[in-house]
Structure formats: C-alpha cells, structure tokens
C-alpha cells in the first residue's frame, strides 16, 4: 500500500483562494470542514444519500462527501458561509427563517444550497423527472420543486415549510 503523500491544491472558496496540502483521500467535505474550518456544510450519511453536504462547485450543486478535494484544484466552491452572513442573509436563508423551514437545522445548509441551485436549474431550462413536455421550457411548480429536492433528506420533516420558502424566493 502506498504511503499517503500530501498533494498541493488551491480551491477558490467563497471567492477567496485557499492553498491546501492534503492526503489524496480527503473528500471535498472534509477539506472544507476539517482543514478550512467551514463547518456549515454538514456530514450526514457521508455516502451521497442525504444531501447535508451539498455545496456549489463552479455554480453546480454536488455532494461534497462523494468527491475528492484533489479533483477540485482550481475550482470555485460556494458553501453556505459564502451565500450569506448573519448580517446579510441570502434571500433563501431569510425565507427559510420566515417560513420555519427547519427544526433541528442539521440538513439546512445543504437544503439552502440545493434550493438556490434548483431555481437556477429551472431558469436554465434543465428538465426533471416530472417535467411534462421535454421540448417545452421547464416551469416552477410545487411538484417540480419536490422532485428536484429529493436528494436532500430532512429527518425532522420540514418539507412543506421548505417548499414554502423556495416558492417565496422564486416569486411564484
């Protein structure tokens, strides 16, 4: 078995370059949480099933737990800390608070990152499993949001309030 040799990489995290030297086994999630101390992104299942680790990479949502940090050298990463701050909330964060879109809050950073990406995916015309006509423009409906958010599990069951928050931000 090879000795773990650290590799150098640079991530653009929330707009700032961050130099790291990491064992290649380090996932993007562990790099963010354990090495950059950005603990907003959460580790739930660590197997891509729960969505608590959802972050945006070059504008697209992925499960940070199922990706190696070394594969993201040079990529732009946006975490919940980069979407907004307590003093300047992202509109999706404010809507989650207004609509009580959580109970324990553990899945919330992933839910919010995913929600922001879902609205961008609909705006970009990316279809979903419930899109009726594949050749037509994707539209915002409650059914579309439920389907597109199915990769984010909420153990407390705040789904209806999450849907209300996303609907408000969509202006639908």
């Amino acid at each position: 078995m090879p000795d773990p040799v650290p590799l150098d990489l640079c991530l653009q995290v929330n707009g700032a370059p961050r130099q790291l030297s990491l064992d290649p086994r380090t996932t993007l999630l562990d790099a963010l949480r354990d090495h950059l101390h950005l603990t907003g992104s959460k580790k739930g299942c660590d197997h891509g099933q729960c969505g608590a680790c959802t972050v945006l990479v070059n504008g697209r949502r992925i499960n940070a737990c199922l990706s190696l940090a070394v594969m993201h050298d040079g990529d732009a990463i946006t975490t919940i800390e980069g979407l907004g701050t307590p003093d300047a909330l992202h509109p999706m964060q404010a809507a989650f608070i207004r609509h009580d879109g959580y109970q324990c809050g553990y899945c919330t950073p992933g839910q919010i990152c995913s929600s922001v990406a879902v609205l961008e995916e609909i705006a970009a015309g990316i279809p979903s499993h419930v899109t009726g006509d594949l050749t037509a423009e994707a539209t915002f409906t409650a059914e579309e949001v439920r389907e597109r958010m199915s990769g984010n599990i909420c153990r407390c069951g705040a789904y209806s309030n999450i849907l209300d928050a996303i609907t408000e931000v969509a202006g639908a």
């Binding site: 992925i62 015309g125 990316i126 594949l134 958010m149």
Partner: peptide, 29 residues
C-alpha cells in the same frame, strides 16, 4: 446529457431514463 436539446427531441427515452435516476446533485457529477 438529459438536458441536451437534441437528446430531448430525438432520444426522449434516454433523457427520461437519466432524469428518473439518482438525485440532482449526483446527476451533476
């Protein structure tokens, strides 16, 4: 692949199959 206009128009069964699998996060990767 699922969102490609040519696939949606000419190979809809492929677009539909892709969209029936996994989650948005996983399909992006």
């Amino acid at each position: 692949l699922a969102a490609d206009a040519r696939v949606r128009r000419d190979y809809a069964v492929l677009s539909r199959a892709l969209l029936a699998g996994a989650s948005g996060q996983l399909r992006n990767k």
